[in-house]
Design a binder for these strands. Structure first.
Lengths: 358, 358
DNA sequence: CTGAAAGCGCTTACAG
DNA sequence: CTGAAAGCGCTTACAG
């Protein structure tokens, strides 16, 4: 199945000295400037000489000007860094984060730049950060000193949170949650409840009793809660009587045990409406509820947040709020590349009514 | 909802000249070597002097040695590039690719390196490629000249295809498909069919009649087909009589119309077994079949490939082959970082029997 | 414990 | 149309 091979001939880290513009210049008896021009400014030398240089380059295996030297000289690397508050693994596997990154990638790539992924975990020293020409910080970075590592002369902007003095992209979290809760509360649920995402100041994966919560300025999920509370109050429900749970990480594995605990409550305690702060949470509710034979929406109404594909290409479809993460990524990239002015932006969301709460 | 702000004070691209080790040396009347040592080799200077340097650095906003200068001097950037055959958008949104990238990221990050994402689209000039210390090429790169852009002295390895003279990581595609087809053919389907992924030499999103296919050396999906054919022959079915379709991109949007066409065939022509080359395809079959009221597995058996979470956290669960993409990524990264020897690897897969073909 | 000097590979303004 | 020279910011072997 695999090609026959001779392990001796497999390329490891080869030891040849790298070929440079200087070697090439020496071999051809021209100046390094001319070799450089052959690659970067065809109009600066005769076609004949250029051909001679390029073919000699090919012959000796010179693959073009080295990016290290070039970027030191020009001051630009054509690299844009995305600084990620959560782990790389989380960001790559989560649908919302992936779409955001895809939006960033599209614009960055379209402008001849590439993407460097920098996880901003606690205490990380990001040696290669200063390589980048600009920074997009995605999500609340736990350690603010992290941000001081980035060269202050380069463009930097924040997504889904704020960094003093810098541009940002947000969505209308509170308004969106007010709307979806308003919609579903019209059905007069008897036991509404809320499943929050990363809302407690200290880690907590389970029921929230008196744990302190993050402030509005710290996390967007607090704004989502405000929206839910506003709608509850409108419906004459005292929000403080509504049970709440907290989820620490937006993955099936982390959600599932908490949700199982909720669904396994006695019939007269089990919520008949779960307002969830993400589609991942809502879909996990749906899966576990179906396994338990609960009827959706008769026994249990479910709402999500995000509008990811997985919640829409299934039956029943999730009632949720769609946010356009791709657009968010595109806008962030456009700002950091200087294609649009640095500003504070707030993107609109859209209520999507599926069968989990018609 | 957004903080009040004064648009005049928002950081755009600031104009200050960047501060260097030289500025710092001048201010403190020490050599640049000493400033460098303060950041990189604490043992090379007295603690008192080091403190003086670091606090002056903080005071003037110097964020540490610039990666461009450093990497030019040391020859290393601590950046590993992943060269992606498909678009960045595809790679970020596809579950298998995301897991692969997460595996790479885990090891790369664990060794103090960061990840540069390089889309290898046709004709791309990857200016920043030579920045990286090593290259992982993921998937068959359409244009082989692409690979010549990478500095030949640096470690490079291929995943899911082969590059002459370089190490690789594969899975046992043919064997895995032989096994899953053997399993499902025991039920003696009357009208088995195959849905391929990117198997025709020329783009084709639909039925395959006589279109030429890629060779084994070009794509892993040809190996998957070989496995299916082997099992069909074992069951005395002439593989050439089995209808085949081709899917050009492993996304719901691209699959759906082709699959709808298959499912909407008259009852006596509609396949009662669909061997799919990915879970994404199989899940799309499942969604569209459920919408049409087909009973699974009575009216239609479905098998997938990959073992992604979405196919397992649902009812009915997909019968599929699980490949450990995270392990693939970890191994690729370990090789390119020099943590394990450069070799050809073939990782085992696992047959997973769900309810779509018990 | 500290510093003077060389040089990593490149591009650019300038002179010819 | 081509070349000599400076310098981007840094680290390192070496001398003191």
């Amino acid at each position: 199945m695999l090609p026959a091979f001779d392990s001796e001939r497999l390329a490891v880290t080869p030891s040849h000295r790298r070929i440079t513009i200087k070697d090439l210049a020496a071999r051809l008896d021209v100046s390094t400037a001319t070799v450089s021009n052959a690659f970067n400014r065809p109009d600066q030398l005769s076609p004949a000489l250029r051909d001679r240089i390029l073919s000699e380059a090919r012959a000796v295996g010179y693959t073009g000007p080295d990016a290290r030297g070039r970027s030191l000289r020009t001051g630009r690397s054509r690299i844009i860094a995305v600084v990620l508050a959560e782990s790389l693994t989380y960001n790559l596997n989560d649908a919302v984060a992936s779409e955001f990154l895809a939006g960033v990638a599209e614009v960055v790539d379209g402008h001849g730049h590439t993407l460097l992924l920098l996880p901003a975990r606690q205490g990380a020293r990001l040696e290669s950060a200063s390589m980048a020409d600009g920074f997009i910080v995605y999500g609340l970075v736990a350690d603010p000193r992290m941000l001081e590592q980035f060269p202050s002369q380069k463009p930097l902007m924040a997504v889904d949170f704020d960094i003093a003095g810098h541009a940002s992209v947000h969505i209308d979290n509170q308004f969106a949650c007010l709307n979806i809760a308003r919609h579903t509360l019209r059905q007069r649920p008897r036991r509404p409840a809320i499943i929050n995402l990363r809302l407690t100041a200290e880690p907590c994966n389970g029921r929230i009793i008196d744990q302190p919560l993050y402030e509005e300025s710290q996390t967007i999920t607090r704004l989502r809660l405000n929206g839910f509370y506003e709608a509850l109050a409108e419906h004459d429900i005292d929000p403080t009587t509504v049970p709440m749970w907290n989820i620490e990480e937006n993955t099936y594995e982390v959600c599932a045990p908490v949700i199982a605990g909720i669904l396994d409550l006695p019939d007269d305690e089990r919520p008949d409406l779960l307002l969830c702060m993400s589609d991942r949470i809502a879909l996990t509710v749906l899966t576990l509820a179906e396994q338990r034979g609960l009827r959706i929406p008769e026994d249990l109404r479910i709402t999500g947040f995000d509008g990811i594909a997985e919640g829409q290409y299934r039956a029943p479809r999730l009632t949720t709020v769609r946010q356009d993460s791709v657009a968010k990524g595109r806008l962030a990239a456009s700002m950091v590349l200087g294609l649009v002015p640095m500003k504070h932006h707030c993107l609109a969301t859209q209520l999507m009514i599926g069968e989990t709460s018609p």
